[in-house]
């Protein structure tokens, strides 16, 4: 690994460590699924679906009502434990399964899933190179003609203006890899944590997917919830 790659990998480790520490509080704020983002996936009746970066399992639980098998992966052991408790409580054990895993090292055979979702995950991966690798891993895991829905936080929204400005100056002094990189704060029990984000543009998402076997079907901004949090959402098919 080059120095740059090592730096990027270290940053991913710090994001995972942060999620391990904030898992409970974070999960409490992520109760409802992003229905708006799941919509392009269509009906998953009878399908085998993978949720990459499933967190506390909020999307998994919805998908398990229709799909024949849903598998959720996340590198945070603590978030997976929360997801496991919820699956047990809702008696979805026959359909929903969990694996502790890293999206950059997918633990699945080629072409094993009909559909894949990757919601609010890819923006935690630093550098274009590693994001491309994650997309290639996703594409490999997907069956031919399988559908994938990928979302990331959108850069150009007013509430992130300060973050974007900060990122611009951090890039000027080479403290981040790219313009768009930023560290978002999270406070919990008197502790302050920072998580790495790369805030996306539509063009970046398009470029990212064009570097894989995935063919873009839809690419748009989706406003989520009453706070209208803006996300870049891409739908693509494996060819």
């Amino acid at each position: 690994m080059s120095v740059l790659e090592e730096k990027a990998r270290a940053l991913i480790k710090s994001v995972i460590e942060t999620y391990e520490s904030i898992a409970e509080g974070f999960s409490a704020t992520r109760k409802s699924p992003w229905i708006e983002v799941l919509k392009p996936l269509g009906d998953v009746l009878g399908k085998t679906v993978l949720d990459v970066g499933c967190g506390n399992g909020r999307h998994l639980l919805i998908l398990a009502k229709r799909a024949s098998t849903v598998v959720g992966i996340d590198p945070s052991r603590n978030l997976i434990k929360i997801a496991k408790t919820r699956i047990n409580k809702l008696r979805l054990v026959d359909r929903a399964m969990l694996v502790i895993a890293d999206a950059l090292f997918m633990p699945f055979r080629r072409a094993s899933f009909d559909s894949i979702i990757c919601i609010a995950v890819i923006h935690h991966i630093p550098t274009k190179k590693l994001r491309r690798r994650a997309i290639i891993e996703i594409a490999e895991t997907l069956k031919n003609n399988g559908l994938v829905v990928i979302s990331a936080w959108y850069r150009w929204q007013r509430r992130l203006l300060l973050e974007v400005l900060k990122s611009f100056f951090l890039k000027l002094v080479n403290k981040v890899f790219e313009f768009g990189d930023t560290y978002m704060p999270w406070s919990s029990r008197g502790m302050k944590y920072k998580r790495f984000y790369h805030l996306f543009t539509l063009k970046e998402m398009e470029d990212l997917l064009n570097h894989s076997q995935l063919e873009i079907q839809g690419l748009k901004l989706v406003a989520i919830g009453s706070r209208r949090w803006m996300n870049v959402v891409a739908t693509a098919i494996k060819r």
Partner: peptide, 22 residues
């Protein structure tokens, strides 16, 4: 790769070495 409390742990080497105790 261990299965602990019904969950397979399938992390890559570097993440396992980061937090090896479990």
């Amino acid at each position: 790769y261990p299965i602990i409390d019904e969950i397979p742990h399938m992390l890559p080497d570097d993440l396992r070495l980061m937090d090896p105790d479990e």
